[in-house]
């Protein structure tokens, strides 16, 4: 009986090497239904990357935390290790926390922190926050997004700091959560605005505009004339998004003062938007 089952698993595994297809999906469904965690896990160590990818997905659907942890820590191939870590998060089982925390100082810490965010235990908040200072942008980005999952609006103070991150992947990743927090996000951005670098100020201004955040209107108006042209441009666009007619005289006044033709053209567009 065991031999027959192993042979059947072998046939299904054999179909996983090719591109996505209905046959491949059926094989994965069958492997999940077989419940043969041990056999599938062994096959991950014996097959090529495409097959491994399919098998790890099967283990994820089986909720096989121990098997995935074993792959994450023992497999010789980086792709297998990383896929297993990602799957540990997607399983969402608290049992996954132990192996994930063990891996938190590894080179895969970007995916580990993301997985911890998916598991969703708030006791991991402190560990996650520590990675916001990581030297690698991908780690900082995934840590920020994990923090959003773990702490929700409580993460706002950390997220606004990342608006000034040196890499856009981090800055833009935190923009959407901040926007989703509404005025709470804008308020936090307003507090840190003066200390933000140019790229951070640009994003903060966009946030104020998209949220129609009135307490920041003074900053928007000041930025129109007192800041370097990229920040002027961001302010103009933020005002254009708001589309409020009260801005028209302020924009016209600024139009006479700005020297950049790029900003000048943007002001024309913004005036048109506000007059609609």
């Amino acid at each position: 009986m065991i031999g027959v089952l192993a042979a059947t698993i072998g046939i299904w595994v054999g179909t996983l090497a090719g591109p996505d297809s209905p046959t491949r999906e059926t094989a994965q469904d069958s492997l999940v239904a077989s419940g043969q965690v041990h056999g599938v896990a062994n096959a991950v160590f014996e097959n090529n990357w495409r097959t491994r990818e399919g098998l790890i997905s099967v283990l994820e659907r089986m909720g096989a935390v121990a098997a995935l942890a074993d792959i994450a820590t023992r497999h010789s191939k980086l792709d297998a290790q990383r896929l297993a870590i990602r799957s540990l998060g997607l399983v969402g089982n608290p049992e996954a926390q132990v192996p994930l925390r063990f891996l938190l100082k590894s080179e895969h810490r970007d995916l580990v922190v993301e997985a911890l965010g998916l598991v969703g235990d708030t006791s991991d908040i402190v560990r996650t926050r520590a990675l916001l200072q990581d030297e690698r942008a991908d780690v900082r980005r995934r840590a920020a997004l994990a923090l959003v999952k773990l702490a929700g609006e409580g993460a706002v103070g950390d997220l606004v700091l990342l608006l000034g991150d040196p890499h856009h992947s981090v800055r833009f990743a935190v923009f959407d959560p901040l926007q989703s927090y509404g005025h709470l996000g804008a308020q936090a951005a307003l507090v840190v605005y003066d200390g933000l670098p140019m790229v951070g100020k640009q994003l903060a201004l966009r946030l104020f505009g998209q949220l129609h955040y009135a307490p920041a209107y003074g900053i928007l108006e000041s930025a129109l004339v007192n800041e370097p042209w990229p920040i002027q441009l961001a302010a103009v666009r933020a005002i254009g998004v708001g589309g409020e007619a009260t801005w028209v005289p302020i924009l016209k006044n600024a139009e006479n003062k700005v020297s950049s033709p790029i900003v000048g053209m943007a002001i024309q567009d913004a005036i048109n938007d506000c007059n609609k």
């Binding site: 708030t122 702490a151 706002v156 103070g157 700091l161 991150d165 040196p166 308020q187 670098p197 951070g200």
Partner: peptide, 29 residues
């Protein structure tokens, strides 16, 4: 735990302006 974190976070918001230049923003491209 998350409530404690929120409280700490709120306090941090008021302190941000003072400490900012020494933290992440110092990493100019």
């Amino acid at each position: 735990m998350d409530k404690v974190y929120c409280w700490i976070n709120g306090v941090r918001l008021f302190l941000l302006c003072c400490v900012m230049p020494t933290i992440a923003f110092a990493q100019m491209p």
